[in-house]
Design a protein around this nucleic acid. Structure first.
Lengths: 245, 245
DNA sequence: AAAATAGTGTCTGTAAGACAATATAAC
DNA sequence: GTTATATTGTCTTACAGACACTATTTT
């Protein structure tokens, strides 16, 4: 190519041919997490086509040529998992050259946190809830293991790595961001909140200091309501003070 | 396209045409950070071509079709900034549809931390050191301002956002990871280490408790040496105990 | 000796962990 | 009343901030 330094910027843009070089494909994948009955769970889709046909995978899809990355993640979550208006944040970009056997595909991974009630409301036969087992402590990191109603599953691509990175990220952010509330219904007791934290972190927390810390944080306020029909003294219900969208 | 569910995976891979859809270009950009004389600095390159010709930008380049993302970042750092073997970690992926006026370019941003001595050893006339000014407190986030020998500079693309995200990330990781040592020479005093932390965090730290905390962490060990020619009582020199690659 | 910073020892306040005591709803 | 958990209060311990004091080098 000749030296283009004599062109104006407009001329240069007009002459630019984006197809001149081979380039990777770009996708997004969304690692959904929920907490229920003291266990981490996720939502997977069964692949209808090669590669990894029949295997479970994260909801995902290719990024449109004029589509923002966040927009693509929102679209995938809506179209493949039937979920909208959930916590969604970019996680990490995975681009090992042979992670997809078709061709080079770089994927921008997102993670989402969902109130388990909305999770349960999903009824699509290609969407499969699965339990997430974390085989490492703390924020060590590494792939997770996944188990659906039929037992242990190997996920497509490097999706067990992506889920593992999502768990690691949430563990890291739980202590100093209001992220835990996205895993709960709009109104909750302090015991429920603690149970969510314990499940995500994979360890028990001190009941008293957890309570003190949360109340002192100013993140929650009592609704004035209490639990009903619980077979013991009902706990006060709280809500997040200002959900910071 | 006809239903391909009757093909074997091998047939499907052979038939797959990666050029069938438009796709974004993919680049990497590296936000370098160093601390010197109580100020954050970075390393920029002057763009020789459109777009943003003549403006300063982060070292960056397109990802090869068979090149790993980390490998691309290492290559860019070596070829454009002349640096090797520095701390380098993926930061965030920026993909707003119009961030590059040529065409859709998604960039995987990395950040690197460098001992300022190695920084100073670079002598290339297209590489420009610049001071980084952070106009926000704590981990609020947002773009930074950049100033080179000639004064305030507007960076190409969204590179001031990327640098801002790098500062935010380092601030967040400084307290609970051994990341600060990558900004220092192999041997250092506790006062130098504290000064680095103060510069990154943008606030003063308590001298006594910083000292106690670092010594109690077990991350450093005394070399047995002391400073020389400092005009006051010389401080003991320390090194990192085991650099965890 | 003066200047300047390194390093040590001690006190205080805050927050977490542990644990005991009391409260309240369902049965 | 019994059961089961919520909620409050107290004590202890760990650690950060503050500050005073001593140490050691250059000038």
């Amino acid at each position: 190519m000749a030296n283009d330094n004599d062109l104006t910027e407009a001329e240069m843009l007009a002459a630019y041919d984006p197809s001149a070089w081979d380039r990777p494909s770009l996708s997004v994948d969304v690692a959904l997490l929920r907490v229920r009955e003291g266990a981490l769970g996720t939502l997977l889709v069964r692949r209808a086509e090669h590669p990894f046909r029949g295997r479970l995978a994260l909801p995902g899809g290719f990024v449109g040529i004029d589509e923002g990355l966040d927009d693509a993640a929102v679209r995938v979550l809506r179209d493949e998992a039937g979920l909208e208006d959930v916590f969604l944040e970019q996680l990490y970009t995975f681009g090992a050259p042979r992670r997809d056997p078709r061709t080079r595909v770089v994927t921008v991974a997102y993670y989402a946190l969902v109130d388990p009630r909305r999770f349960d409301a999903i009824t699509r036969d290609d969407v499969v809830p699965a339990r997430v087992e974390v085989p490492w402590e703390g924020e060590e990191g590494g792939p997770v293991r996944v188990r659906d109603a039929r037992g242990r599953r190997r996920l497509a691509f490097d999706h067990d790595e992506i889920l593992g990175m999502a768990v690691k990220r949430v563990r890291g952010k739980l202590d100093y961001t209001p992220i835990g509330y996205d895993l709960l219904p709009p109104t909750f007791t302090l015991a429920q909140l603690r149970r969510v934290h314990e499940t995500v972190l994979g360890r028990r927390l001190n009941k008293d200091s957890f309570r003190r810390r949360v109340l002192a944080s100013g993140e929650v306020e009592p609704t004035g309501e209490r639990q009903r029909d619980v077979g013991h003294r009902p706990a006060a219900l709280y809500r997040v003070r200002q959900r910071p969208t």
